[in-house]
Design a protein around this nucleic acid. Structure first.
Lengths: 204, 204
DNA sequence: CCGGGAGTGTTGACGATGTCAACATACAGC
DNA sequence: GCTGTATGTTGACATCGTCAACACTCCCGG
């Protein structure tokens, strides 16, 4: 073995904790993650996780940050999977963003639910979110250059787009959207509306 | 006394619990609300709240629902405060929505944070949120008739607008928006972008 | 007027949970 | 092989939500 993370008694408990916590979140929500429960599922004692994470919050923050990384990778695939010429691609990224949330509701909730995590700043989590945001900014800048969307502050535009997608994902996850049957249609309409508002056009 | 809620020993503990819980949420977040703490602050025992609310969740749900009511009233003021002729009014409603969230971050978080509240359906909370949504639908319908915005499914359009506003509020509250200095400008840009995407126009 | 019942509040207790200190074990490098 | 450190375990404690048993207060019917 001799991984860089170490593999003493258990054999890389740190990675196992991250995976098991993510699994438990998917099964029963973040509230179901208990130091005792996760230890039991991994065959270690309740205090074992404290050798790898300062406290329960640190573990959850790490899981949440991993979620941001996964989401970013998924969007990156779309970003590089087609030419940046058409705003169509930006639209697909938005759709993929919401789809990730719909497929991983509890994980997504954890990523954005600061209340459950901390009242202090958790740099690890902030950085992961910022990386995602910067990716979006870069795509928007590219589309500004190609003339697809208005040449405003790209960061502000990125916040607007992010807000719309995150809001839709959040409302859906919390059960506030009753158009249960056609979430895909709603996702499309949301991306189209926002992009239309960002597009270059003659009138007005 | 002889209120409809009763005023026996304490003198309307139920109302006091709601008010005190809201105050504690504003001061220290929803996590700081403890049955023991709230009892102590009101000079009653830790079990006294259980005579008025089935459990802690029920209390928090009631507080959250009250938040939806307050928010709805606030938007209603704008809705009725000016003629519905201009979409300008819809824009102001959106801005007011986000402003409410920014001014009451912990309360807003509670309103939308299902995780902290329940895994079952809480009809009281759902109904309060739906009432808010229906208000938005009605305003949008009015603007469709006056020709300001596209004649699409008004509910779908309401979801889009709600998503954008809620998303912006949520991102801001969770500290993901670093343009700390000019939140008002960002709010304005968000409402304008979404409304532009919903507007009737010649091109395209 | 008064006695009982319902509404309201209190106390004691229990199980679950996060966390720490003290202790035990196993691996790595000398 | 020995020693130190990384890793894991156990016991304990404080806090929390919640319930059962009890106590008090008010109102209403006789």
């Amino acid at each position: 073995m001799t991984d860089e993370t170490g593999a003493y008694h258990h054999g890389d408990l740190r990675a196992a904790l991250l995976a098991e916590a993510a699994a438990m979140i998917a099964e029963g929500g973040a509230a179901s993650v208990t130091m005792r429960a996760i230890g039991q599922r991994l065959g270690v004692s309740r205090a074992a996780p404290y050798r790898h994470f300062a406290d329960k919050t640190a573990l959850l923050v790490a899981v949440a940050a991993a979620g941001f990384d996964r989401l970013k990778s998924r969007l990156q695939t779309i970003d590089t999977g087609a030419p940046r010429s058409s705003v169509e691609q930006l639209r697909r990224m938005g759709e993929e963003y919401v789809r990730f949330a719909v497929e991983n509701p509890a994980h997504y909730r954890l990523m954005y639910g600061k209340e459950a995590l901390t009242r202090q700043d958790r740099p690890e989590l902030s950085e992961a979110a910022i990386a995602l945001f910067e990716q979006l900014v870069s795509v928007i800048q590219a589309h500004q250059k190609s003339g697809g969307i208005k040449r405003q502050d790209p960061r502000a535009q990125a916040y607007v787009a992010w807000s719309a997608m995150h809001g839709l994902a959040s409302l859906w996850i919390e059960g506030h959207i009753l158009a249960t049957d056609d979430i895909d249609g709603l996702i499309r309409q949301t991306t189209r509306t926002v992009l239309d508002g960002m597009r270059v056009r003659r009138s007005r």
